[in-house]
Design a protein around this nucleic acid. Structure first.
Lengths: 228, 228
DNA sequence: GAGTGTGAACGTCTTCACAGCA
DNA sequence: TGCTGTGAAGACGTTCACACTC
């Protein structure tokens, strides 16, 4: 989950982390339903659509009850209304600009990937340490030198930072982002990042995901050989 | 976590899912230590290096105790030995070939990203539905038509499937992977996948990660305005 | 009848605290 | 003395089951 530093315990107003992690999944399914013209949905149906870890009706109901309940007994949830309240809770009324650092292989793909902008996270700027890349246009956005980072963050009134640099550069880049005023970071570099209190880091490590799958594959193979 | 279907409860031989998810993080830090010539490490140091959710000494010790303990009291853990036993537990002795479906923006980047092969997950084949892409070389690997998928999986003796297609195509592609014998899937498409029992799916959804960060940003802003 | 909302039971994960060993 | 290994306690998250409402 969100990496939290020292802090003895978090006591937010209310919503559990596990629930927060599932709200985007519900939202995704709800948008699909709305596009199909569906007006209401039951917790059972929503659980099925959201799938995976979000896949039980009871869990859906508990989760949604945290947003000041909105369902109708005997009927289900109003799709449009649910979309509104989840969006509000996630702070999606506002668009959050993204600054992406590291325009290598992965950074390039992320910048070109339309899924960010279309979901309310427009890429405001690209940065790279390599002088050869400066000025290059990626997905219609110019690559800038790191020195311009503070100005961009200030001009945007805050931003989410995305780190797509090699592991060696990640901590340094992270420090610069934080110094520039960024308080939320998504880290693709395979390294743990140290950040001061009040800054949130989430990480995506592709190799780690594969290794977890490997564990399960391994287990499955083993089970065939030694059938308990 | 790993998406599990119906099943009332999983009872594996032993290691908790939460621990499995952290083992790759320890492994990463241990490799870095080994490269620096460090021979032993304490649970406290390892917790610091692995960072994030893996960041408490007690947790590290509990986690490592599941691998049939290997530390020395008063000293710490032998780095090389720990690398071996974690690797063994994760099934990394064997190399797991990866078949990647969808050579669009993201798929292209994943195929070009060296981090897979270097960590024991060589890309065995690329597939795409678009006839214009067939034959194209990406990262030295040829793009093939989906019809060749079963043969490739069989020839490799199993594989991990990576889905990097648009959301609309993902379920269909997933079905084809499963039919071809793939039992572990990493899904980048923003959709829930239905799979039969015995198949594991892990998902990475970039927009979801950003939305979770958005929630925390939102909360931080709110806290400034209404200082409790 | 159908489906939500929720206390209470349950299971899992984390943290504590300390005994035990090099 | 220093650090591991681990039962026991505690926090957190999920599931159950049923009262309640439309």
């Amino acid at each position: 989950m969100t990496e939290r530093r020292s802090a003895p315990a978090r006591r937010r107003a209310g919503i559990p982390d596990a629930t927060v992690a599932r709200l985007p999944l519900y939202l995704r399914s709800l948008h699909a339903l709305a596009d199909d013209g569906v007006r209401t949905v039951s917790s059972e149906e929503l659980a099925r659509l959201a799938g995976g870890s979000a896949g039980s009706p009871a869990k859906v109901r508990k989760d949604l009850s945290h947003l000041g309940t909105s369902g109708t007994r005997g009927v289900g949830y109003d799709v449009a209304q649910l979309i509104d309240s989840i969006s509000a809770e996630l702070g999606l009324a506002r668009r959050w600009p993204v600054v992406l650092v590291g325009v290598g292989n992965l950074g390039h793909a992320l910048a070109g990937y339309g899924g960010f902008a279309s979901r309310g996270f427009p890429i405001a700027a690209l940065f790279d340490a390599d002088p050869d890349r400066l000025g290059e246009l990626v997905g219609g956005v110019r690559v800038r030198p790191m020195t311009e980072l503070p100005d961009v963050v200030r001009a945007q009134g805050g931003a989410i930072g995305v780190i797509a640099t090699p592991a060696e550069a990640a901590q340094e880049v992270c420090d610069q982002l934080v110094a520039a005023g960024v308080r939320s970071v998504l880290n693709f570099a395979p390294t743990a990042l140290a950040v001061p209190d009040g800054v949130d880091v989430r990480k995506v490590d592709l190799a780690v995901e594969l290794q977890i799958l490997s564990f399960h594959e391994h287990r499955k193979s083993a089970r065939v050989e030694v059938p308990a």
